[in-house]
């Protein structure tokens, strides 16, 4: 049973492509004389495969958006959807259910986490790549191992620790535990290793200190990677749910993801809020999606992992 119709489509694309491997010539996509995009067999199949894959991936979002235009989760015909119900749904979600406030909190939390995590990880990567010190591999291992300690595994003691620190309902609790990041340090290290050694040697010859070297040479040369890594960190902290749910109980401080959970609570109490749920989901998706689209170029150029 084909697990995912998407794979099926691509499988067809691949089998037929193999069949005609022979005279596959790659012509310039736009054939100047004839003015038409001269698509040969292979490119056509590539586009077909891509269109299918991409449309299957976008389908859920499209349907979620449609539901947010209606009044009930199951709509039989598009006629039941209307713009002013949508406006009503989105207005309710943003203001009556405070999703607007939650998103501002999430934004502030994410920006602090991104900047904090970036600063901390840049320093760590600088030490790991440009310093020789005893037990270096062990220290790097300790940083990487944090990948294996996700929030659910340590939630109760973490809560008690934050409570003892008096951080309940504070931005400190929402941001500081996230500052250590194995992925960021790893990606920055990979990038620093791709910078020629002679640059740091000539900096040392000039007597340029490590922090000045980081600020004026490493960071300007890693703008692409920093932007890319910031996108990943922003999306990671924006999508945090379990920890904010527990550590914040004052709703003026709550984050967007928990806002969705609260909307879900509304539905559970029998109220037909499914379109509201979808509106809430679409609204919380906008910032991370915007960040992803704006910064897609650096993301794609600098993310080779050697």
């Amino acid at each position: 049973m084909s697990r995912h119709s998407n794979t099926n489509a691509n499988a067809n694309a691949s089998t037929s492509a193999n069949a005609s491997t022979g005279g596959e010539s790659r012509r310039f996509p736009i054939d100047l004389e004839r003015g038409l995009p001269a698509l040969d067999g292979a490119t056509l199949r590539a586009h077909a495969g891509l269109l299918l894959a991409v449309s299957l991936m976008a389908l859920p979002l499209v349907i979620a958006a449609l539901i947010s235009f209606g009044t009930r989760a199951t709509f039989t015909s598009v006629s039941e959807l209307s713009l002013e119900t949508a406006a009503q749904n989105y207005h309710d979600v943003l203001f009556r259910y405070d999703m607007g406030q939650y998103m501002l909190n999430s934004l502030l939390m994410s920006v602090i986490v991104v900047i904090g995590k970036l600063a901390v990880s840049l320093l760590a990567a600088l030490a790991i790549v440009y310093y020789r010190f005893p037990f270096k591999n062990a220290v790097f291992g300790v940083v990487l191992l944090t990948l294996m300690l996700p929030v659910p595994v340590r939630i109760v003691p973490l809560f008690q620790l934050a409570a003892d620190l008096g951080w309940a309902n504070s931005f400190a609790a929402l941001t500081i535990p996230y500052l250590a990041s194995a992925t960021t340090v790893f990606l920055l290290r990979q990038h620093f290793l791709s910078i020629p050694a002679s640059l740091v040697e000539s900096a040392k010859l000039d007597g340029v200190g490590p922090l000045r070297f980081l600020a004026f040479v490493l960071i300007p040369m890693s703008k692409g990677m920093i932007a890319g890594v910031s996108v990943i960190m922003f999306i990671y902290s924006w999508n945090q749910y379990l920890w904010p749910l527990l550590i914040v109980d004052d709703q003026s401080m709550q984050v967007a993801q928990v806002g969705i959970r609260l909307l879900q609570g509304v539905v559970e109490s029998g109220d037909i809020a499914w379109p509201l749920m979808m509106a809430g989901s679409i609204v919380t998706l906008v910032p991370p999606l915007a960040v992803l689209i704006i910064f897609r170029k650096p993301l794609l150029e600098t993310f080779g992992v050697e």
Partner: peptide, 16 residues
């Protein structure tokens, strides 16, 4: 949403 993280971090590296 000024997210030019590169300049931002360079600017406020110490006080972050």
């Amino acid at each position: 949403m000024a997210l030019t993280a590169g300049a931002a971090t360079a600017g406020c590296l110490d006080g972050v």
